[in-house]
Design a protein around this nucleic acid. Structure first.
Lengths: 125, 125
DNA sequence: TGAATAATACAACAATAGTTGAAATAACAA
DNA sequence: TTGTTATTTCAACTATTGTTGTATTATTCA
């Protein structure tokens, strides 16, 4: 993953409203929601929502599909998993026992750090 | 996790420089680095780095420990794992088969979505 | 003690992001 | 066709963030 891709993703989730949108769509899964439905659910002006949907979509966090005059948005979960892999790339490089310690300290020990659990990731700097 | 915690974390990683700092420290593991070492490695003015270290530390992404007149910074990996759990909370609520599909679409299929892995494995439907 | 070093705080300015209402575009329905 | 609905684009304004140099605090060492 490119560094710019990662920062754009983080930027896209750094607003409370955009985070609400993304999490709402994660819950909806493959069904997704159309723009107006999202706007009324979160009680934001359509023009403002459109601004944030654009940011999320350009970051790749959402996909959009036209349905007549509606636009259906869905969360792009695979991209999130790729981001996680990028973040933990070369974690504790050369010292896997440290990774195990940190993992155990999480409230969610079932979350597997990709480079620790499996084949080494290719580092693209 | 509080929503404000999550947006502050994303905000803290939305700058290219702060992302460089975080990833550098993830690689260093429990050893960490002192501020001046980070500044010279990334070639940024100390005053500017200090600004960004403060943001990352206030977001909880870094810990800091005084060593005489040095300040040693380390990445807080457990918080990242908690963030992942928060993001994928209630993913595809009620439709685990969708989660499996999305997971398979990732470049990193070994990355386990926490709420999916802790969901009862007995599939009905 | 006094000089040197590590790091942060402050102030000023430059740059970017967020919100809103009005207007434009495009699809549907009567 | 004409009117209605869904969504986006645009322009203006407000608010926030990023960078830099200087000053300050605190620690080490001669």
């Amino acid at each position: 993953m490119e560094k710019n891709t990662a920062t754009t993703i983080f930027e896209s989730l750094s607003s409370g409203l955009r985070l609400d949108v993304y999490r709402l769509l994660v819950r909806k899964g493959t069904e997704g929601m159309v723009a107006g439905e999202i706007a009324s659910t979160l009680d934001v002006p359509p023009t403002n929502l459109s601004f944030h949907l654009k940011a999320l979509t350009q970051a790749g966090m959402l996909t959009v599909e036209a349905e007549g005059r509606f636009q259906r948005y869905r969360a792009n979960l695979p991209l999130m998993l790729d981001l996680i892999a990028y973040l933990t790339e070369e974690c504790c490089s050369g010292h896997p026992e440290q990774c195990a310690d940190m993992r155990a300290a999480s409230k969610c020990p079932d979350a597997v750090l990709p480079p620790f659990s499996s084949t080494p990731q290719t580092s693209e700097k």
